[in-house]
Write a protein that binds this DNA or RNA. Sequence first.
DNA 1: CGTAAAAGTTCACCTTAAGTTCTATGGACG
DNA 2: CGTCCATAGAACTTAAGGTGAACTTTTACG
Lengths: 230, 230
Amino acid sequence: MLTRKQLELLELIDARVKRDGVPPSFDEMKDALNLRSKSGIHRLITALEERGFIRRLPHRARAIEVVRMPGGADAAHVATVIDGGAQAQPQAPRNAIKVQQIHALELPVMGRIAAGTPIEAISEISHHVAVPGSMLSGNGEHYALEVHGDSMIEAGINDGDIVVIREQTTADNGDIVVALVEGLEATLKRFRRMRGMIALEAANPAYETRVLRDDQVKVQGRLVGLIRSY
Amino acid sequence: MLTRKQLELLELIDARVKRDGVPPSFDEMKDALNLRSKSGIHRLITALEERGFIRRLPHRARAIEVVRMPGGADAAHVATVIDGGAQAQPQAPRNAIKVQQIHALELPVMGRIAAGTPIEAISEISHHVAVPGSMLSGNGEHYALEVHGDSMIEAGINDGDIVVIREQTTADNGDIVVALVEGLEATLKRFRRMRGMIALEAANPAYETRVLRDDQVKVQGRLVGLIRSY
DNA sequence: CGTAAAAGTTCACCTTAAGTTCTATGGACG
DNA sequence: CGTCCATAGAACTTAAGGTGAACTTTTACG
């Protein structure tokens, strides 16, 4: 899986992060591996990223994170240790064997939502889904809903899909939102504001656009992601 | 992941919140880090937010929250500990570490695939995505591809979507598959076998169904999931 | 409720640190 | 003897960090 050099670099990064709390820069790595040019480091880093051992933010200084160590993790079920909120706890519990960082989060599926016509509650949690971190905007609360109906089908949202919603009370034109109409019907529609009114458009010609007064519509969240299983 | 300054500031905020119960103001942080201008703090805060370590409400006084600490896990980045299989950690660990199951796996994105017309390589890994375990069939290798083009649009597969593929060389009628045509074109199409020939149907009337001889088509995998970010 | 103080934001300017890219070099190898 | 590939080197681009000042929004208080 890894060449000797790649492994060496991976172990170096891991050791430095543990020692300093801060990942090494390219220059520091180059010195530590006795190379004279950091372009070699660049290639090694790229290789490690491709193989899924580290994650990084391109062009960002010291933005490297070790995701797993060789021999490590690759199973579908993994136990995650979530730190209560603060208190870093670097070392894993003793009987843990392998560690992998997964860039994802479990979100509650709060129920079903009728995509086209109205109703179906945002009520109790039925279960949870893992959602890739890249879908989440960093700040803001998120939850998931199961789509029922075909009214958003032309937007590529099918019956049974899981949609990921970011809680927010405002929306821009063209956003797909979860809106509460008349205080009770929760629907998933495309949001458009026009001369004082709000239009909720379905993405299916069989459904009519509903134009409502400002006070009849309460935006509850915006669609930020979609997950479908076949 | 963090530079020294960023880490320093993060630890300061964390310590202050623990000590005072209230996050420090920009001026207080500036003094604590021995800076003469608070605009530097602003930039560090922005960097910490980008990297997902803190969450904040813009313009609000002292509205900063530490979401996670380096090495520690919370929010979008979660450290997963793979328990050997048996014994999980039954007893509540010393400093209130919560254990959560994340039912997901990081899959490599192997490149782009043209959904409609032909070609685009399954070549090197560009990056990784977390994929919910419910998508994975337990056994079998999986990988991900970025969809390019609109040929599968009526199946709810849009340009830019990430599709999750399970490696397999056979397919049932109606499956959506990654197929290698004539040994070089990789396409995402619906698979149908008819009287000794294989039909690869696009889900877009603008594209024609291609009917090919058995030996011209090699099934490489089957679509098992889809992930879309807005 | 209005206003002043406090807190957060933005900009311009600068220096240094860090990451990226491209081309050249030199050895291993068939 | 040419190809492959890791290393080197340097040029280049961008990010990080620092400062000071003006400006806007919140928040607290009389």
